[in-house]
Computed example of a mutant assay.
Amino acid sequence: MADAKPTLMRRRLGLALRALRQRSALSLQEAAERLGMSGPPVLSKIENGKMRVQPAALDGYFTTYGVADERRKGEIRTLARMASSSRSANLFNQYRGAVRDPFADYLELEEVATHADWYASQLVPGLLQTPDYALAVVEGSGKWHTAREVRTFVELRMQRQQVLRRERPLEMWCILDEAALRRQMGGARVMAEQLRHLLETAEEVAGVNVQVLPFSTGAHTGIDGAFTVFRFDAGDPLVVVESLTTSQYLEEDAHVGRYDVTFNHLRARALDTVPSRDFIHKLIKEEA
């Protein structure tokens, strides 16, 4: 097993294996010996997400830790499959010059998640952007210094959208604040094209739902800003909150529960999907 940079999913798998070991009342030393490892440091790296675990090796852990529950075994195997996902790593390596290391975790989340609840307060989410809209957003952000970096990051954003059209697509429920739809990014033509793309995606791509939160809603539970709740086949949901310089990955039940409640309140107050389409159609006419 080779050393590896910890990722969110690899850390989750490591924590799950640690929990199994602790329930079996085995020390690192005892468990490492029974698993045939060279010593406790190897197992410690695995439990901290710093070393890959081959799915074929999981049966050895189950036997050593006395795991008989088939449901729990299935959850662990699913975590291992998610932790070994390679597409996000390939994307990150391909576009490494335009993105920072922490973004690799975000790419991994989009790749392994099965569902995402998205509240967008200022901008259309990257997975729903057109190339011209994305170009206007990236150029305007001031985060990239050369035209090449800008083009590369826009290309990556377009590549990321494949998760909505893969064999098992990422399901996406998106609540868009009216501000995100009215903010002029790239001019009237670009905005009209972006709004039409939103409608087409919601109509053509299974699992993509769009609701509009109009200004007339007034104060609401999402007033503090945008966030995304990712859900998975195994493991608890995770919340991503992006700020100017970093992204926060929230996994504690109290945090996730608060954002779940917030999203449900927003969904209840937003226009339903059909009135939302009518609202966007109206905005397109205004852009004409």
Rank of each mutant, 00 (worst) to 15 (best):
M1K: 04
A2R: 14
R12S: 10
R18P: 00
L20Q: 12
R23K: 15
Q29W: 09
E30S: 13
A31G: 09
E33G: 12
L35K: 01
G36P: 04
G39R: 06
K50W: 09
A56S: 15
F62I: 09
T64G: 01
G66S: 07
D69Q: 07
G74T: 09
G74F: 02
R77L: 10
S85P: 00
L91C: 10
G97V: 13
A98H: 08
Y106K: 10
E111G: 00
E111Q: 14
A113P: 07
A116P: 05
Y119C: 01
L123D: 08
L123G: 00
P131S: 11
T146A: 11
V150N: 10
R151A: 15
T152E: 15
E155S: 15
L156E: 12
R157P: 02
Q159F: 12
Q159G: 03
Q162K: 15
R166Y: 07
E171C: 02
D177E: 11
L181I: 12
R182N: 04
M191P: 03
L195N: 04
E200H: 10
E203R: 15
N209A: 15
V210T: 02
L213Q: 02
P214H: 00
H220E: 09
G225H: 10
V229P: 04
V229H: 01
L238W: 06
V239S: 06
V241A: 00
S243P: 05
E252D: 14
A254Q: 13
N264I: 01
A270H: 01
D272C: 04
P275A: 00
R277E: 14
R277G: 07
I280S: 07
K282R: 14
K285M: 08
K285C: 03
